[in-house]
Amino acid sequence: MILYLLCFILLLIGLYGVITKRDLIKIILSLAIMEYAANLFLVLFAYRKGGTYPILEEGREIAMMVDPLPQALVLTSIVIELGITAMLVALAVRLYQKYNTFDITKIRRLAG
């Protein structure tokens, strides 16, 4: 249970960072923390006490393997996050080119 709580706290730390930080790069990093917390959560609930890795090899029994599906989901979501993070970094670089700053409070051409 304590692990789930820590995972949730990690998610909140990321959310806090996204909301309060003013630097574009810090916002991207906070988003990454948030996404890692979600991934961690997925891996965490698939775990069980004494479970082993879910890879079939010669002479291994299936009984004590952990659930492989959430791990597959996490792999997929990591790939997606890679794409989104690359996109965000590219946008941040372009914003820096146009405004000469990473400070989000100074990037305000769109009102309201």
Partner: peptide
């Protein structure tokens, strides 16, 4: 700027 905002909001909701 709009795209960055959109992407950040979208990522939060996706998470």
């Amino acid at each position: 700027e709009a795209s960055f905002k959109y992407a950040v909001m979208g990522s939060i909701s996706s998470t």
